[in-house]
Design a binder for these strands. Structure first.
Lengths: 220, 220
DNA sequence: GTCTATAGAACGATAGAC
DNA sequence: GTCTATCGTTCTATAGAC
């Protein structure tokens, strides 16, 4: 094997043995994200990840060193994915306001569905939360900063703009964003264990609606 | 715990081989709670639990069947422990109000410290949350009902009483209790991954204070 | 004498690492 | 593909309780 010293060819090289195979690495990362998210860290076996990625175990060890490094790498690399999705939702629903309460409601609902819904957008995030006590502080902070905190800063910026337009009465935009998330998201996150179990749609909409009403009593 | 069939006598019965040994079972349950809470489900070995309990592995299997049953039993049996602690705090701080904002503040702070603080009051709860996807719905619901939901109902009752006294303006006491928890607790729970990492005292008090102020703007 | 609980060794499977 | 460690589980023998 010894992949580093195999044929040098600069050609596209679809076959195995090329000098660098970023697509293999990416396949491993994707597979690891899937399996870690589905099984959790300890239950996920390197065998299962290799099978999911369609590579041999040895390839994983060559690329990532060991299981822990693989997990931490994937945790860091995927930290920003959901942030961008949520930023897109905020831009779509909060950029041009037509009905403040309705627009906030739709944004909050879409965000909750994106994070907690059936898809595995956040499956790895669940595992990261579960393993928080075993993750080095720097990696944890990097994940927080590229993930949840980034979404919060983005939301605070939106609220600042809405305040400038006179649609909201906000002094501390960061605090308003935090409390918006608490009132419209954290309840559902807690009730579903961050998406691990299903929440009936009616309960989700009821919780979000009540949260939006409280938020507008505070800042409307 | 084990309400109906507790030990009949006051006799010490130190020797081995007695017909029923509930104190061994309790030692196992305590040890399992500790080790599961500290290590998580998959990392916790039956060996480690046996060592912590001062008991042989075989004894664990005789009492609980297998590792999964042991975990689920302990999860159910310890569900109400923290609930009673929090109920005591609520009774202490919310029964006789002298300064509404200060009393709510103290209660919220004490509760957050009790749940998220260094002690392992909630360590097993963290593991239960992490394993939610692998826990049978009925067990999960029983844990929720004896734990977080029970605390919430208790808090709602307090708020109902305070509303009757004219100290709060609350229509839906359950909703008020939910939003109180969201505004004064969930932020810290989220930031610490339910107590897995430490939160500086200053940040905790700042978050709680801001949450109480918002709550009183909503219901004061 | 029989029953039950205990301790500690032993087994089979699995997973991480090379 | 192989090695090695570990884990969940089971088996065997011992000893007190009825």
């Amino acid at each position: 094997m010894t992949p580093g010293t195999s044929a040098t060819s600069g050609a596209p090289a679809p076959a195995t043995g090329s000098r660098r195979m970023p697509e293999k690495r990416q396949a491993i990362a994707r597979a690891a994200s899937t399996v870690f998210g589905r099984e959790g860290y300890t239950r996920a076996s390197v065998d299962a990840i290799a099978a999911e990625a369609g590579v041999s175990k040895r390839t994983i060890y060559n690329h990532f060193g060991d299981k822990e490094k693989l997990f931490l790498s994937v945790a860091l690399e995927t930290a920003g994915e959901l942030t961008e999705i949520i930023a897109g939702l905020a831009d779509r629903h909060l950029h041009k306001i037509v009905d403040l309460e309705a627009d906030l409601n739709t944004f909050a609902l879409d965000r909750a569905r994106a994070v907690l819904g059936a898809g595995d957008h956040y499956a790895l995030g669940r595992t990261i939360r579960a393993e928080a006590g075993n993750i080095p502080t720097e990696v944890l902070n990097a994940w927080l900063d590229a993930g949840p905190l980034a979404s919060q800063r983005d939301l605070a910026a939106h609220f600042g703009r809405l305040a400038d337009q006179g649609l909201l009465h906000v002094e501390d935009t960061e605090l308003a964003a935090t409390q918006f998330t608490l009132l419209t998201f954290s309840g559902a996150a807690d009730a579903t264990f961050y998406g691990a179990i299903h929440l009936p749609e009616a309960e989700l909409t009821a919780g979000v609606t009540a949260g939006i009403r409280a938020f507008l009593r505070l800042y409307g």
